[in-house]
Design a protein around this nucleic acid. Structure first.
Lengths: 221, 221
DNA sequence: ACCATAGGTGTACGGCGTACACTCGTCAAG
DNA sequence: CTTGACGAGTGTACGCCGTACACCTATGGT
């Protein structure tokens, strides 16, 4: 067994989180996985919090930040969709990032690059600021959904929808239509990718409109 | 000491979470607070998960869903801002809701009411669906921010911004301007309420535009 | 040849959620 | 009035968790 190192620890932690989820990632289990006693890990990470920051930094750091051509809009869009692609490979990443209070260096690098795209596109500092806030976690390619359970097969889903027709009529109506659409087209649940791009474009269009009206009239806010 | 009951347990749990945070809310501590042995709680809630669902349901259930007058837009806006007001009273609520996989009944009731506002405003089922997804957690009045640390006093903040001018130039520029604005106007950090309403209005405006163009042209999606 | 140091170990503590077997007070049926 | 079932609260115990602290040991610079 090779020597331990921060890299080896983080790498193994990412792998473990991938297969066991965030809950399954414990210092003790990670140590076992590395063939080492739990306390050995503490020579390479300060504590579990720092470990989590570390694995976030690892996966966020792998987002391709190479130069993008074209206007700010397609550029931002492309970069965010790239981030999404990367983070979808690690299902635990979004919850992990959400749960942190302070951004890791890689996250700051990423944000910095997005702000740069806005600014080079002619956004005022203020508008860029508002844009960042408006995008929220969507900036990293994930959205905070309140429902995860639209994932059953259309039949079950349809049955559930019927069951709540009395209590939640509007919700039921919506669920029924979704179930119907899915049955006639493709796999289970809502089309998350479509919904993500829909919301993203809505926001980007909004930014663009403000940006343009600011170019002619006086500055916003 | 009065007898225990689900209500008393949930009430105490909300209070404990309010003052000790989500991490400080443990079955054992909650039991102590109620002057009872830990296992006694299990006669009233199935397990900790159900307890969390319970307190979420409690606070979300307290959001005022009374009838709102006027167009869908001010109506939705008002309802969401009411929800925000309520959830801001319980700082743990947003993280708790985010962490759940399935919505509690009160959340479904709330979502149902919002969908109702859209539908009565003439939205197609599809548009209402996209709108719900686009709002994401903002529908309940909170947004997933990647930065919480803009909360220090402007001086510290400004110093930090200067320190990262080399590594994250765009981020630093933004932070500097924020720090400057704050110094000349009001208390610390970004104006979260302003940013929230800014993003909310951006989304609602977007919905409106799609809604209107759908009224004339063929249906969207 | 020496010894400081860094990496890995072993033991232990206090906390967590909760399974399971129990006691005991209340209240309805006989 | 007796009885017995039942539901609320108890006590003990198990297996996890993160991590403090003292320890050993191999390595590499002097």
């Amino acid at each position: 067994m090779a020597r331990l190192s921060r890299e080896r620890v983080l790498e193994a932690a990412v792998a473990l989180a991938d297969e066991a989820g965030l809950d399954g990632l414990s210092m003790r289990r990670l140590a076992t996985e590395l063939g080492v006693v739990p306390m050995a890990l503490y020579k390479h990470v300060a504590n579990k919090d720092e470990l989590l920051d570390g694995i976030i930094d690892t996966v966020v750091g792998e987002i391709d930040l190479g130069p993008v051509e074209g206007d700010w809009k397609p550029a931002v869009r492309a970069r965010i969709l790239t981030a999404r692609e990367q983070l979808l490979r690690h299902p635990w990443a979004s919850s992990a990032i959400e749960s942190r209070r302070n951004p890791t260096p890689a996250v700051m690098t990423y944000m910095n690059s997005i702000i740069g795209l806005f600014r080079r596109g002619g956004f005022s500092v203020n508008l860029a600021h508002h844009a960042i806030h408006s995008l929220g976690s969507r900036i990293l390619g994930f959205s905070q959904e309140l429902f995860d359970d639209m994932a059953a097969d259309p039949e079950t889903q349809e049955a559930a929808a019927h069951a709540m027709k009395d209590t939640f009529p509007w919700l039921a109506e919506l669920a029924l239509q979704v179930a119907h659409d899915e049955k006639s087209i493709v796999g289970s649940g809502c089309d998350d990718q479509f919904e993500f791009e829909f919301a993203l474009d809505l926001l980007l269009d909004g930014f663009e409109r403000i940006h343009q009206s600011a170019r002619s009239g006086p500055q916003p806010r």
